[in-house]
Design a binder for these strands. Structure first.
Lengths: 205, 205
DNA sequence: CAATCGGTACCGACTAGTCGGTTTGTACAT
DNA sequence: ATGTACAAACCGACTAGTCGGTACCGATTG
């Protein structure tokens, strides 16, 4: 185990507590007691309880964005890009599952100045997926008659919802889940031409 | 507009407030003031603030369950059942959108005795979808190699996530969205035999 | 080496304010 | 008179955040 700074210890503790009781179900007193520190220590590291919530949000969304960009840039065809982006996201999942729960369930409680920063990153993420769908339509891999918006939100929903049911010690691995998601989405949006490529690259089950 | 009882007025008010500020972002004082009543009136109608939260949860999930059961019972083939169930759900959406937001974002704050009731109904809902997938595999409409669990969660995720982005006054109607969802999911899980039937019944775009 | 100094990290008692819930009061119907 | 349906004032518990203080650590000086 790496040496843990006080800040890291507070975040780790808070994540566990928030996930089970929700942001408002946990007081700063409880966080500092569980983390084995003090009120002073907490406010030395964080401007406010809200700032801690923001940090948890930002760490997660920034990582997702970074990985997604990489997946987009490092792949050639839209099919490769889609699969790689899905794979990236679900990979982040395994590491940041606690962040995600807080991210999606408690974001309403972020003060506006924090919320805007997060919102921009979320938008950027959505636009990258929309871009891939558009690319695929133009290149003939994806059917032109599907709606980019709806398809994008379908993909995001499908993937994001995983945080509600996926358990790291459960019987399903992220690998299996991603494989199924790829199969479901690709079959749903590809043209016959696209299907040839996907089959050849073994993206389908 | 129908005559509104005090109880209905409180629920309507609370829904609007909760949706924008979250459950903990709204005090009972604010609810009663906005609803034009008093603390006494509130606690005359509700045992506690938690009880109000529970009621919002229950109204929504009970309706979803009822509609889904109907969709299952009143259709013959798995393909019809799936489409009808999706259609039911998205229909409930239009009416209960505010409930849904509270339902998914604030359920962590339900006290255990309430939470268990809700959890049972959610499980029942999930099992109905799993049942349809299984039915479809047996009847040859759906591909036997897909995982029932993952596919079920994919469908639920896809559909549920809609509450995060769908807006009643937006440019997309629920009708269009449902059509796309049906297309995406069916193409993703059907066998060639199933595809014939779906095309014939015009379930695909 | 030892004494001193400055700054950072951290502590915990304290406070002002807010919240959910209760108690008491009142108007009205039966 | 008695119960119902609310209103208004009130209360105790709890919370986020503050603030005066201490412990520690590395650099500077004699």
């Amino acid at each position: 185990m790496a040496v843990q700074s006080l800040k890291e210890r507070i975040i780790e503790t808070a994540l566990d507590l928030f996930r089970h009781k929700g942001y408002h179900g946990v007081s700063v007193d409880e966080i500092v007691e569980t983390a084995g520190t003090s009120k002073g220590g907490f406010y030395h590291k964080f401007k406010s309880k809200d700032a801690l919530l923001y940090e948890i949000h930002d760490v997660f969304i920034s990582q997702v964005l970074k990985e997604t960009k990489k997946a987009y840039d490092q792949n050639e065809t839209p099919i490769d890009k889609v699969c790689s982006m899905l794979y990236s996201f679900t990979n982040v999942f395994d590491v940041y599952q606690r962040h995600i729960t807080v991210f999606y369930d408690e974001s309403a409680y972020l003060p506006p100045e924090y919320k805007n920063v997060i919102k921009e990153k979320r938008t950027e993420y959505r636009q990258m997926i929309e871009q891939v769908i558009e690319d695929g339509k133009k290149s003939g891999h994806f059917r032109p008659e599907i709606s980019t918006t709806i398809t994008t939100m379908a993909i995001i929903g499908l993937v994001n919802w995983t945080y509600k049911w996926y358990r790291q010690n459960g019987s399903l691995t992220m690998e299996q889940i991603t494989l199924h998601f790829n199969d479901l989405i690709l079959r749903g949006i590809m043209t016959d031409q696209g299907s040839q490529e996907a089959k050849h690259k073994k993206y389908l089950i």
